[in-house]
Amino acid sequence: AQNGYPISPTLGQYWQLGYNKFKETLSGEEFTSWFKTFAPDGRAPKIGEIWRSPGHADTLRKIAETKAESFYRGELAERIDAFSRQCGGHLSKDDLAAYAPEWVTPIRVHYKGYHVWEIPPNGQGIVALMALNILKEDDFLAKESVDTYHRQIEAMKLAFVDGLKYVTQRDQMKVTVEDLLSDQYGAARRALIGEEALMPEPGEPVRSGTVYLATADGEGNMVSFIQSNYMGFGSGIVIPGTGISMQNRGHTFSLDPNHHNYLEPGKKTYHTIIPGFLTKGDQAVGPFGVMGGFMQPQGHVQVIMNTIDFHLNPQASLDAPRWQWIEGKIIEVERDFPEHIALALERKGHQIKWGMGPGGFGRGQIIWRTDDGVLVGGTDHRTDGTVAVW
């Protein structure tokens, strides 16, 4: 932040798109600080150009020196509160002071000899687990097979519509995580998959802007970590002089009072960012993640199946062409997706759209530990990530 960072290719592309969008849509004094911080020369920084943000550097020093007290109860909290009130916002210093991190127990499903772990709701990791729970009884003999893609897509659609209906803050969900991940419910959803593309509907279980990184060390410690402002640059509100860009993670809620995900004070509504983890027996295999909004659980399912069903190494698992369910029967596929399979999927009733670039198909990272204790990493070619070893 202090000395500058050279803008990398993928970052530069999205920065320019964000700038273009904000230039067209944001007006008013409350957004002036965003442009001063992220477009200091009246434009987005160019690829390869050094960008500096001394406000960020000063903020990070204050957070470090006060052990985060400045952000939650001190000077930074006061500045956030003041600018929020100036802009007609609702975030107050009392909200910041009342915040406490939540330690949660991850949720999991057993998939063909492995356990796949995700963060529980309000995150959407359960969507990936529901899809894998539907697919776990199938034997996939070939990756590049129309039947493989068809069943993956159908399972993903069924899991997603359930997630979009039921997922919210866990203690306010009207169905339990255990019900959604039960063998019985997985089997019932699996039975709906036929030869033709279906129009997905939520089931009725029995009642009882993102950065991902992974790291591991030689002592067996592993971390799966994800953070996001959402929608690229978040809300467009930057606290003057601090570099703090206010996020937009509360976006995915409903204003229908009858919806499971209805917005209420203090409630953590549906959240898209989900770090993943894989274990076998009582041993950690490693962390994995695919960032990218609603592509995330779809990317998790594809990466895990590439690893377990098709025995691809981490880099090949990430490099494989991807698809994503958009809505109804609409499936978007990458430009290098096999055309003959796309045509075969259309014959099954799927509506295929060809993606214009890699941006919408997620950007992932993986570290697996082999039986011999060797750490093997992969980084997505769709982003500026790298595998660093020391």
Rank of each mutant, 00 (worst) to 15 (best):
Q296F: 01
Q169Y: 07
G241Q: 06
T242K: 08
Y5G: 04
K143E: 06
I153T: 01
N20F: 13
F71D: 08
D380R: 03
L158F: 12
D217C: 10
Y262V: 05
R79F: 09
A77W: 05
N229L: 14
R151M: 02
W368I: 04
F310K: 00
S228A: 15
E49R: 12
N221T: 07
L343S: 13
E75T: 14
S27C: 10
I237H: 09
K348E: 02
A320R: 06
P358Q: 15
G362P: 08
Q2W: 12
T386P: 00
E137N: 14
R207P: 06
G293K: 00
P257L: 06
F294W: 13
Q302E: 00
I63R: 09
T105A: 07
L141Y: 05
R335C: 02
G373M: 06
G209C: 08
H260N: 12
Q152T: 00
I367E: 04
E178S: 13
L345P: 01
V161L: 07
N229P: 05
F22M: 12
K46E: 15
G194W: 13
K165V: 04
N261F: 11
R108K: 12
G250I: 02
I326S: 00
Y149P: 00
I330P: 01
P40Y: 10
Y19F: 14
H311V: 11
Q13T: 08
V333E: 02
S33M: 10
A44Y: 07
S235K: 03
K67L: 12
D183Q: 08
V167S: 06
R369K: 13
Q302T: 00
M231E: 04
E29C: 03
D41C: 05
G364M: 03
I308R: 02
K267P: 07
Q124I: 01
R335Q: 15
Q365H: 15
G373Y: 09
G276Q: 10
K280V: 03
R43I: 04
P275S: 11
D41S: 10
I47F: 11
L180E: 08
S84D: 08
E219L: 14
T370A: 10
G163A: 11
V223P: 03
A188D: 14
L26D: 06
W51K: 09
G55M: 09
E24Y: 08
V175E: 03
G163I: 01
E346D: 01
G373P: 05
A131G: 02
C87V: 04
E24V: 11
I304D: 01
G18E: 11
P9N: 10
T242F: 14
I107E: 07
Q227W: 00
Q124S: 07
H251Y: 15
N133Q: 08
K46Q: 15
T32W: 05
L91M: 13
W117P: 04
Q247G: 09
V333M: 00
H350W: 02
Q365G: 11
G89S: 12
D336V: 01
L312M: 15
L91P: 04
S228N: 07
E327S: 12
Q152I: 01
M291T: 15
P358H: 15
Q86M: 11
D309F: 05
A191W: 07
E327K: 00
